[in-house]
């Protein structure tokens, strides 16, 4: 039982991280139909910033990592995606795939192929015992951090004018423009928020591993993208929920699959994904079929 609760907490925390990453993808997708594969490289950039500046103190390092993430995210938009407004989602996905590959090689060139290490917030890597249950501090921190971020995002999206504009644009970009919402500002905002979320994801992952290499963000982005799509990338809540489901499932499978099968956990998740896509191609949280089935 205790073991189950431990794995449950870990799974919720894994789901929370992936949910944030999927949200980072979904926010941008809602506005410009871009499923940004290069979100992983925003995460990687934030992780490098944390690792390389951690010795300056967390109050310096964390803001720097957020700034770097937001900066890179906006730079992607300005340099590449703003020039591709007429392209369809599939073309945009391939372009972001190329950008991801490109940035990974740039990181390799700058930081080398070996991982860089630093004990980022190593206090959080310990575990505490509560009523006979060993709980990782990081899992709790992750869950709290995610909750705070989600509440803040929710308040921003419903209580501020800018947030409402973004929400409207994510729901229906064309109509939003028709009623006079400035497209450029909203798009920039979605990229900036995506950068902040990516920085949060990078923080959790960096505490977990204490090391970062050029392909640091790839695996989580693949899973987050997959999660966002099965949850319903058209809706902000869909991306979040889908990411959570994938993270939760992966973590639970890792904990409970029989010995010798754990290596195959990603395969099970991918099969699950194909099954979900087959029955609900537009996503779990979207009502009806949504896409034209031909």
């Amino acid at each position: 039982m205790n073991q189950f609760i431990q794995s449950l907490v870990d799974a919720i925390s894994a789901g929370a991280v992936l949910g944030l990453a999927a949200l980072a993808i979904g926010l941008v997708f809602g506005v410009i139909r871009l499923a940004n594969f290069a979100t992983g490289e925003i995460i990687t950039a934030a992780a490098y910033s944390l690792i390389l500046t951690w010795h300056l103190g967390w109050y310096v390092s964390i803001p720097i990592s957020i700034l770097v993430a937001v900066g890179i995210s906006l730079l992607m938009e300005l340099a590449v995606f703003s020039r591709m407004r007429k392209a369809g989602p599939a073309t945009l996905l391939i372009a972001s795939f190329g950008l991801s590959f490109l940035l990974q090689r740039v990181y390799e060139l700058i930081f080398g192929n070996n991982v860089r290490t630093a004990p980022v917030a190593s206090e959080l890597a310990q575990s505490v015992e509560v009523g006979g249950i060993r709980i990782q501090m990081l899992s709790v921190t992750t869950i709290v951090l995610t909750a705070v971020l989600l509440i803040a995002l929710q308040l921003f999206l419903t209580k501020t004018s800018l947030g409402l504009q973004l929400k409207a644009a994510a729901a229906d970009f064309r109509t939003a423009r028709l009623v006079g919402i400035p497209a450029g500002r909203v798009i920039g905002l979605s990229f900036a928020l995506s950068g902040i979320l990516a920085a949060a994801v990078a923080f959790v992952l960096t505490v977990q591993s204490g090391a970062v290499g050029p392909d640091f963000g790839v695996r989580i982005t693949i899973l987050a993208l997959v999660g966002a799509v099965i949850g319903g990338i058209d809706k902000i809540s869909g991306s979040l929920a889908g990411g959570f489901v994938v993270g939760f499932a992966t973590s639970m499978l890792a904990a409970w699959l029989p010995e010798g099968m754990t290596n195959f956990k990603d395969a099970f998740v991918f099969v699950l994904v194909i099954a979900v896509l087959l029955f609900k191609p537009s996503g779990l949280l979207i009502k009806g079929r949504g896409v034209v089935r031909t």
Partner: peptide
């Protein structure tokens, strides 16, 4: 018969999932 029902982004993700499954199976089995 499963994958070919999907279009656009969903097709991209599903085919990628296939690649993921095959890669994991070939790596570990």
């Amino acid at each position: 018969p499963v994958l070919m029902r999907l279009n656009g982004l969903q097709a991209g993700i599903a085919t990628f999932a296939l690649l993921g499954v095959v890669n994991v199976v070939l790596t570990y089995w």
